[in-house]
C-alpha cells in the first residue's frame, strides 16, 4: 500500500512536469499550427535562468593571501560572497531562496525569449510544411544547447531548494500510513506549483477577453481576423506565454534534477508523446495525458510489475501511445480532423 501510494505521488509529480511542457507545446500548435521542437530548449533555458540567478546571487570577491600557497604554488585565493559580506545573514537567506527568486525573474525573461523567437524565426515558417518547421526548430534547439554548453560546461549544475523545504515530508503520518512513508518537500511543492500554473493558464484563456479571442482564433483564425482583430499579435503573445510555462517548469525542476545543457532534449520526446496522446492542440488533453503517462511510467517501474514484464518501464509510454493512436488517431481529447490524416 505504501509503495503504491508513493508511486502515485511519483506519477503525479512527473506528470506535472510532462503536463507543463506539453501544455506550452500544444498551445503553440493550437494557435500557430507550429510543431516546435525547440520547446525542450525553452525548458532548458528556464532551468538556466535559475542557474544564472544563483550565480549572480553567489558572486564572490577574491582576496589574495600572500602568506599561503595553493597546491600548485600560486598565492592562495580566498573567496567570499558579496551578499554575505554586505548583508550578513540576510544575504545568505537571499542565496538560499535563489530558486524562488529565479521563478519571478523567469517570467519576463522567457516572455521576451518566446516573443523574439516567434517574431524572429517561427513566423517565417507558418505556411511551410511541418517537416520544415521541425527541422528549423530542432536546429534552433541544438544551437541554444551549444550556447549554454559553451558558457556553463557539460556537467550538471546542482541547485538547492530553500532550506525550509529541502528535506522530506512525513506524509505517511498525515494520512495514517505510518511514519516510514516520506516524500521530498520540493516535489510536493512542484506538484502544487504545476497545478497552479495549469489552472492559471486555463483561467487566463477561459475568463479573460484576451483568452476568449485566442480561443476563437484557435477555432477559426480567418473569421476572427475578418472582425478586425489582430489575431497574429495575440498569437505571438500566446507563444510567449508557452515559453513562460516551459521556462517555469524548467526553473522549478532544478532542485529535483541538476540542469545541464541537454535537460530539454530529455523531456522533449516524452512531451511530444504526451501531446500526441492528449490530442494535438488540445490543452485539456495535454494535461490529462501528462498525468496519465506520468502515473503509468511510475507504476511500470515497480519491481512487482517488472518481474512480470521485464523492461516494461522503458516502453510503457510508447506502447500506450501506439495503442491510443491506433484506436483513436486524433488522441484522447483531440478535435476531429486534426492530425488524423
Amino acid at each position: 500500500m505504501d509503495a503504491i501510494f508513493l508511486q502515485i505521488l511519483n506519477g503525479l509529480d512527473k506528470g506535472g512536469a510532462y503536463a507543463l511542457i506539453a501544455l506550452g507545446l500544444t498551445l503553440a500548435f493550437g494557435t500557430l499550427g507550429v510543431v516546435n521542437f525547440a520547446h525542450g530548449a525553452l525548458f532548458m533555458l528556464g532551468a538556466f535562468c535559475a542557474v544564472i540567478v544563483n550565480k549572480l546571487l553567489s558572486l564572490e570577491h577574491v582576496t589574495i593571501d600572500p602568506t599561503k600557497l595553493s597546491p600548485w604554488g600560486t598565492p592562495l585565493e580566498i573567496r567570499s560572497s558579496y551578499l554575505e559580506t554586505y548583508f550578513g545573514d540576510f544575504g545568505l537567506v537571499l542565496i538560499d531562496y535563489s530558486v524562488p527568486i529565479a521563478i519571478i525573474l523567469t517570467i519576463p525573461i522567457m516572455l521576451i525569449v518566446g516573443v523574439v523567437m516567434e517574431r524572429g524565426l517561427i513566423r517565417h515558417f507558418y505556411n511551410r510544411p511541418h517537416a520544415d518547421q521541425i527541422l528549423v526548430t530542432f536546429g534552433l534547439a541544438i544551437v541554444l544547447q551549444e550556447i549554454v554548453k559553451h558558457y556553463f560546461g557539460a556537467n550538471p549544475i546542482p541547485q538547492t531548494a530553500p532550506e525550509i523545504v529541502s528535506g522530506s515530508a512525513d506524509i505517511g503520518s498525515w494520512i495514517g500510513l505510518g511514519a516510514g512513508v516520506v516524500y521530498p518537500w520540493w516535489r510536493l511543492v512542484y506538484f502544487c506549483f504545476s497545478g497552479l500554473v495549469i489552472f492559471g493558464v486555463f483561467a487566463f484563456l477561459k475568463f479573460t477577453t484576451f483568452g476568449m479571442v485566442v480561443r476563437a482564433g484557435m477555432h477559426d483564425r480567418q473569421t476572427v481576423a475578418l472582425l478586425g482583430i489582430n489575431i497574429e499579435k495575440r498569437f505571438t503573445i500566446v507563444f510567449g506565454l508557452a515559453a513562460v510555462v516551459a521556462g517555469l517548469a524548467g526553473a522549478m525542476y532544478t532542485p529535483i534534477l541538476p540542469p545541464d545543457y541537454h535537460i530539454g532534449m530529455d523531456f522533449l520526446v516524452l512531451s511530444f508523446v504526451v501531446v500526441v496522446v492528449g490530442g494535438m492542440g488540445s490543452l485539456g488533453g495535454a494535461v490529462a495525458a501528462g498525468f496519465l503517462l506520468g502515473l503509468l511510467q511510475s507504476f511500470a517501474s515497480m519491481n512487482e510489475i517488472k518481474s512480470i514484464i521485464p523492461g516494461i518501464d522503458q516502453i510503457i509510454i510508447y506502447l500506450v501511445a501506439v495503442i491510443i493512436l491506433l484506436a483513436r488517431p486524433r488522441g484522447l481529447m483531440g478535435r476531429a480532423g486534426v492530425m488524423e490524416d
Binding site: Q7, G180, R187
Partner: peptide, 11 residues
C-alpha cells in the same frame, strides 16, 4: 528522474 526506482528502496 530516478524517483520511481528509489521509492521501492524505502520499504
Amino acid at each position: 528522474d530516478f524517483s520511481q526506482y528509489i521509492t521501492p528502496v524505502l520499504n
